[in-house]
Design a protein around this nucleic acid. Sequence first.
DNA 1: GGGTTGCATGTTTTG
DNA 2: AAAACATGCAACCCT
Length: 591
Amino acid sequence: MGSKICMRENCAATTSSPEWKEGWSLKSGGLATLCYQCGSAYANFFFCETFHQEESGWRECKICGKQIHCGCIASKYMHDFLDSGGVGCIGCIRDLETRLVRPVQISSNDIPNGHGTSMVIGDENRVDGDNINKAKLMQLSKSAEENQPNYLPQPQNGDLDSSNGQIKQEENMLPSGEDGTGLLHLSQQCGRSSMSSKPDRGRPSSGIREMYESLAQPSSVFSYNSPLGMTNSVLHFPGGVVEGREKSKVPPMQQGQRARHILPKPPKSGTSTGSQANKGTVSHSQTRVARPPAEGRGRNQLLPRYWPRITDQELQQLSGDLNSTIVPLFEKVLSASDAGRIGRLVLPKACAEVSSYILFLSLLTSLALSPCGSETVQAYFPPISQSEGIPIRVQDIKGKEWTFQFRFWPNNNSRMYVLEGVTPCIQNMQLQAGDTVTFSRIDPGGKLVMGFRRATNSVDMQESQTCPLSNGGLSGETSFSGVSESLLTETFGWRKNETRGGMTNEDLLQRPMLISEKKKTRNIGSKSKRLLMHNEDAMELRITWEDAQELLCPPPSAKPTIVMVENYEFEEYDEPPVFGKRTIFTARASG
DNA sequence: GGGTTGCATGTTTTG
DNA sequence: AAAACATGCAACCCT
């Protein structure tokens, strides 16, 4: 470590770096050695923005408008030249090419005012123009230059509103390089767009970019208190066509990230959804992009729905404020049983287990298998061989430490991994089914980061719940409290004989409350339906304690006995209360 | 009697 | 079809 020198020009950090990272490929073979700071910027795709933002060589992707730095080794593989001139993000180019390769038609019935042509979507629901072919790709890039945005259906033409035209966000991010890292890298870079602080970069006046932008409004978004704004211009089309299966059935919040791609119900007046939209707390400029995990086996195998969706700016800010790097690992939408009273959070297998294939690869490449080494093939949790598993300690936003039992049990010929004892933590964070927990790691140190995001539709109601948590967080957390990617975890500091069950000292005090709440969180719904209550529906059922009290009226005839408890007056009735809403009497002027 | 644990089973998703 | 996952449920444990 001591003899290394950072290969970023003008950096040349030597022994000062706590950790060394790998950068770009060198002509001489191998990878560039970067100090921690530079390596982190490279790994998180803001190398150019960070280190030579003011240098010349920035150009605009003709397709998405993202600023690309063309004069730098770090961005060398991140752009390509268009036949018609100009440059494009590799991600954009590949994406368009991909759609040419896999067109599938859907009925024109699906597209009101579809001009008699069928919308062409990818076989995985990509939105495309009218039978785009290779020639049109050429035109496409031309049109971008000429600002003629008509090769892809516009929302107003194809009525490509929220009921049509969705693209799987993940698809755009899928790696297509041999090792799955090439495009992955590039796609993320593409998704970074205006992370650059230069405000007017990456803003093509019109053209294809507008089309994408017009389509890229999130169908369902998470709200962030954070005022941070950023643009991810990655080509995704949330809010559009729901994929075939989803068109006919829209299981609320059930299928992980998919739920977010599903067209939300029309906002009810006064509901959070509507107000959310009005507030614009999450705009296009804060589009959440699924990131393949930056490293580890998840990069190769983790299902896209578990890809963390922290925004670049959140990442950058977190990394900066904490003077460290946050490596998003995975996230999971809580199922009813995850959030239920059993206190078992089912972990995606790919996050918990190193497959034999990966092991094989790691052997081939002589990589050591290490529980938390950042440069190795790894699962996000330490390998366990005993069903009882091991306790792992987690620290939350308040510095509170939780201990979960990471364990598994046999399931068919496989294993099912769970974190046990999460109930106190979940309750502490006031999470419920449909909310998302995120796991990241903080480097250096390899600490796990566990955060959460609340589901969209209950944001308004939950804001009040969130505030105490957010505001009570670490000072560094406050500015991005709503980001919620913020449980800094003391990972893998497991202790063998620690009590299982995610209890902290504070929780021992809270325990009576937790126990009583357990009954409230009992799972509802039958197995056959497996419905997680849609948050919006749930809102209709949720009432505050005050609301509930309003519904309870003393029997009209009963007279209360006044009881003083700690200087508070309580009315005691012999009769049971009457259930009903308080009556409001009104009188007209006429009487 | 109620809670917990360990596993089984049904459903959904993926390839 | 296989794998992954959500949840049901019986056996056991605790109060």
